[in-house]
Simulated assay, not measured.
Amino acid sequence: MEIVKSIPIFILAGLCEIGGGYLMWLWLKEGKPLWYGLLGALILAFYGVVATWQTANFARVYATYGGIFIVMSLLWAYKFDNYTPDKYDIIGAGIALLGVCIIYYAPRQ
């Protein structure tokens, strides 16, 4: 049950951090209007709130989110920046995801 509850929260957190960061990137690096940056900052602040919805402790939440962020960043770049991950990107992301799943979901006594 913990997996069913935590995965959507991790995905929402990823969308907030990557989406907010992407809007900031577009504003600062691509010359988009100021409102891109302001909206990006607001979304990034919301990311900080979303992460607190997880039930595990800070260390496990942020470590696990890091691995999920790796995968989501590659997917975001593929969708929005025409970036095609190579086999090493995919292998590395898979290893990171496996590692953080062990950190977060392994049974503990």
Rank of each mutant, 00 (worst) to 15 (best):
residue 32 K to L: 05
residue 7 I to D: 10
residue 105 Y to K: 06
residue 37 G to E: 04
residue 98 L to M: 09
residue 55 T to F: 00
residue 42 L to H: 08
residue 44 L to C: 13
residue 69 F to V: 02
residue 83 Y to S: 08
residue 105 Y to M: 07
residue 45 A to M: 12
residue 76 W to N: 09
residue 68 I to R: 01
residue 55 T to I: 08
residue 42 L to W: 07
residue 88 Y to S: 12
residue 46 F to L: 15
residue 74 L to N: 04
residue 5 K to I: 13
residue 65 Y to I: 01
residue 84 T to S: 10
residue 106 A to H: 11
residue 26 L to F: 02
residue 54 Q to M: 12
residue 106 A to E: 04
residue 75 L to M: 14
residue 18 I to Q: 00
residue 31 G to K: 09
residue 60 R to K: 13
residue 57 N to K: 06
residue 14 G to A: 11
residue 78 Y to M: 13
residue 84 T to F: 10
residue 74 L to S: 07
residue 3 I to L: 12
residue 16 C to K: 02
residue 94 G to F: 10
residue 33 P to E: 09
residue 81 D to Q: 15
residue 56 A to D: 04
residue 37 G to T: 04
residue 20 G to Q: 06
residue 29 K to C: 08
residue 3 I to V: 15
residue 42 L to I: 15
residue 62 Y to C: 01
residue 106 A to I: 12
residue 82 N to L: 03
residue 89 D to K: 01
residue 54 Q to G: 07
residue 11 I to F: 09
residue 35 W to F: 14
residue 23 L to F: 05
residue 69 F to W: 09
residue 19 G to M: 00
residue 40 G to Y: 01
residue 62 Y to N: 03
residue 67 G to M: 07
residue 4 V to R: 10
residue 55 T to S: 13
residue 84 T to M: 12
residue 108 R to Y: 03
residue 47 Y to R: 08
residue 109 Q to I: 11
residue 68 I to T: 01
residue 53 W to I: 06
residue 6 S to A: 15
residue 29 K to N: 11
residue 78 Y to F: 14
residue 15 L to G: 12
residue 16 C to W: 01
residue 80 F to R: 11
residue 90 I to N: 10
residue 50 V to N: 09
residue 103 I to C: 07
residue 15 L to M: 14
residue 87 K to W: 14
residue 87 K to Y: 14
residue 73 S to H: 06
residue 31 G to H: 03
residue 70 I to D: 03
residue 41 A to P: 00
residue 85 P to M: 05
residue 59 A to V: 07
residue 1 M to P: 11
residue 24 M to L: 15
residue 10 F to G: 01
residue 20 G to Y: 00
residue 101 C to S: 12
residue 29 K to Q: 13
residue 57 N to E: 14
residue 8 P to S: 11
residue 7 I to K: 14
residue 72 M to W: 01
residue 46 F to P: 02
residue 41 A to L: 11
residue 49 V to C: 11
residue 36 Y to V: 07
residue 46 F to R: 05
residue 55 T to Q: 10
residue 87 K to D: 03
residue 28 L to D: 03
residue 87 K to R: 14
residue 98 L to G: 08
residue 47 Y to E: 04
residue 32 K to P: 05
residue 58 F to P: 05
residue 18 I to R: 00
residue 105 Y to R: 00
residue 50 V to G: 10
residue 23 L to M: 09
residue 8 P to Q: 12
residue 55 T to Y: 00
residue 66 G to E: 04
residue 33 P to F: 03
residue 50 V to C: 08
residue 69 F to T: 02
residue 40 G to N: 07
residue 25 W to G: 03
residue 52 T to E: 06
residue 81 D to T: 08
residue 78 Y to D: 01
residue 57 N to G: 13
residue 23 L to P: 04
residue 36 Y to D: 06
residue 74 L to A: 07
residue 1 M to E: 12
residue 16 C to G: 06
residue 24 M to K: 11
residue 68 I to S: 02
residue 91 I to T: 06
residue 10 F to S: 04
residue 40 G to I: 02
residue 106 A to M: 15
residue 45 A to Q: 06
residue 21 G to V: 06
residue 68 I to Y: 02
residue 34 L to T: 11
residue 30 E to A: 14
residue 104 Y to L: 10
residue 24 M to S: 07
residue 40 G to F: 00
residue 49 V to P: 05
